[in-house]
Design a protein around this nucleic acid. Structure first.
Lengths: 162, 162
DNA sequence: TCAAGATTGATGCAAGTGCATTGGCTGGGG
DNA sequence: CCCCAGCCAATGCACTTGCATCAATCTTGA
């Protein structure tokens, strides 16, 4: 039951942790140097912008972004504070609410994407052929999916991420 | 100069971020549930334990672990507070100091490794063949190394990581 | 030899995170 | 019909992180 991992598995673990941390901070730095807010803001704005009517329930956002409930709540606080989103009451369920992206929010999302895309290209695209990138995605998928019985994932496009 | 990333590159970025975050928190949770401190502690204890004489300069530890200076300083504070390491003065350079692992520190490092190895096996080893794990490591390496001209990396063994 | 600059490590402060709990509301079973 | 288990979102508190800066010491070079 508690078999030890092979050296290959251990090495893969090690690389996965180190490399993503380096790449993530490199990309975050690029964004920050360009004067943009953290990546999490982008992700939230992206999810909102592609949602029906530009709005969604916090609980839905939470599931998309895979972050804890309180974290979602505070992220929304900040977006609202900056005028990038607004909270709307939900008439169908008075416990809940809707969060709607504002025009300013859509604009920021788009302009962040320019810098973001450039950073991805710089730190990933330029270092891996498309075929290798696809192989990498495939291998990573095998680590992530089987974890908890999440349905195969709805398939995302220009899947911005995080 | 600002070419856009291919869909493959973007997808790889996305997966890299999501998957490592899931795997990392899964492993951290396993450790925590077993009553152990955070992974960073393990990494530090591991580095110390394999250092000559079980001691090293904070600045050296910092370079091994790839974490910021203040972070190292505070991590050492906590290890010392728990009796897992001690600070020693450095006679050769009075600005600096040595940090030495204690017997308790060595013991904790070893017992953490049991749980840690099991977690790696559970979340990585059992999901990837050794060959696939090696392929994954190779692809990840291509992302990490060329970043900053760090020498090819001294090559680590049971490279615990993070 | 001495001043300027670099390096080592610590720390004050602001901001972010994790955890537990609360308060409001819903919906279903008795 | 009412009550209670369960869900939604917010928040108080402790702790951690990031950033800037400091004090002490070392090194370099004129």
């Amino acid at each position: 039951m508690k078999r030890k991992p092979s050296p290959e598995a251990t090495e893969a673990w090690s690389r996965l942790m180190r490399v993503q941390s380096r790449v993530l901070s490199a990309v975050e730095q690029d964004l920050k140097k360009a004067g943009f807010p953290p990546l999490a803001w982008y992700d939230a704005l992206f999810e909102l912008s592609r949602a029906e009517g530009g709005e969604m329930r916090p609980v839905e956002l939470e599931r998309q972004m895979l972050i804890p409930q309180y974290s979602t709540s505070r992220l929304i606080d900040r977006l609202v504070e900056e005028g990038l989103a607004v909270r709307r009451e939900c008439k169908r369920d008075k416990r809940g609410q809707y969060v709607e992206i504002t025009p300013a929010g859509r604009e920021l999302q788009k302009s962040m994407w320019n810098a973001y895309a450039a950073a991805i290209e710089r730190h990933i695209g330029s270092k891996l052929s498309d075929a290798d990138a696809a192989t990498l995605s495939g291998l990573l998928d095998r680590l992530g999916c089987s974890c908890d019985g999440a349905p195969p994932a709805p398939l995302r496009d220009a899947a911005p991420v995080r």
